[in-house]
Simulated assay, not measured.
Amino acid sequence: MSQHSVDNAPKHVAIIMDGNGRWAKMRGRPRLFGHQAGARRVREIVRACPDLGVKYLTIFAFSTENWKRTQIEVAGLMSLFRRYINKEMQEFVAENVQVRFIGDRPRLDAKLRNLMDEAEAQTAHCTGTNLTIALNYGGRDEVARATRLLAEDVAAGKLRPEEVNEETLTRYLDTRVLPDPDLVIRTSGEARISNFLLWQSAYAEYEFVDTLWPDFSKEEFARLTGAYSARDRRFGAVKA
């Protein structure tokens, strides 16, 4: 990618990683085989970010709705998350990747929550790619939780009702330390946003691609970020 393209690259890319189950089914394997392949793909995409000018990468790992899946698949995913975080922690540090998690943590098991806390603490000093993993995350749930916290502060007299606006609410979101996503990618051919970063992606560009997540390559990632770089973004304004 040229220097001009990197300069105009999306600084924050969010990805709905879809298609692991179908990828596994096409190979006659269980769904968890696809999730394992998808986890390996994450590493390649994280490593591609610096050369593409992407500073922030947010991935949708497990939604608040995913609890509706079979108990076997949910248990397998939770085990995969624990192994992934444990295995990748030193890699994140070595590659200067800062890791954070968003979502409603209390429903997750204590061992997984402890690993999440440890990963955040161990990579807090890293200054390279910012990797945010959405785990037990839902956009509406996030806004509801933020609103509840905001209401508690109003009730406690820490905030006046007339001070509540878009900027105020943003400070209560899980993503309060992150810029809004510039580009949201969804793999596997589905063209919906599935309750992902609803508030934050109000002005994001969207790309829906047919590729199943385990097949999503760094070359395709580069093509999509390159296409974004050529777009004219006006945020509701009109150029003179």
Rank of each mutant, 00 (worst) to 15 (best):
Q200I: 06
K158E: 00
N114F: 00
W67H: 10
A48F: 02
P10V: 13
Y206S: 04
L149Y: 02
V154Y: 03
G38V: 00
R47L: 13
M1Y: 13
D7G: 14
R47V: 06
K55T: 04
P214W: 14
M89T: 11
A237F: 14
G226Q: 10
R234N: 08
F196H: 03
L212R: 00
D109Y: 13
N114S: 11
T64E: 03
N195Q: 11
H125P: 00
V74I: 05
P214R: 05
A110I: 11
L77Q: 06
A61F: 01
N8S: 12
A61C: 08
G103I: 01
S63W: 10
T170C: 04
L135Q: 03
G103M: 06
A39D: 02
F235H: 12
F216V: 03
P214Q: 09
M78I: 13
M1V: 09
G34D: 02
D232V: 10
W67D: 08
G139K: 02
I133C: 05
T168N: 01
I15D: 03
A9P: 09
F62S: 09
E73P: 13
R27H: 10
L173S: 00
R69S: 09
C49M: 08
A9R: 01
V177F: 06
G53V: 08
T168L: 01
F221L: 15
L149Q: 05
N136L: 04
E163N: 14
A61S: 08
Y203V: 06
Y228E: 05
D18F: 13
D18P: 15
A75E: 14
T127L: 10
K111C: 04
D182H: 15
R145N: 08
R160A: 02
E91L: 10
V238C: 11
G38S: 05
R140G: 04
G128C: 10
R105T: 00
F216D: 00
T187G: 08
M26I: 07
H35R: 03
D182E: 14
D232Q: 12
A119R: 01
P106V: 03
R223D: 07
V209I: 15
V46C: 10
T129P: 02
E142V: 11
V93E: 12
E152C: 15
P30I: 10
K239I: 13
E95T: 11
P181H: 08
T175V: 04
R82Y: 06
A119N: 06
S5L: 11
N114M: 04
G138V: 06
L135S: 05
R233E: 15
W23I: 04
Q200N: 06
L197M: 14
S188A: 14
A227V: 03
R47C: 13
S79N: 12
A134R: 01
T147G: 07
Q36D: 13
A146S: 12
R223M: 07
T127S: 13
E118H: 07
A230V: 13
I185Q: 01
R231M: 14
Y84K: 01
R223Q: 11
F196Q: 02
R107C: 04
Q36A: 13
R82W: 09
F208V: 06
G38F: 00
A230Y: 12
R107W: 00
A9N: 12
Q122G: 06
V154G: 03
A110N: 03
R148M: 07
L131E: 02
E152K: 15
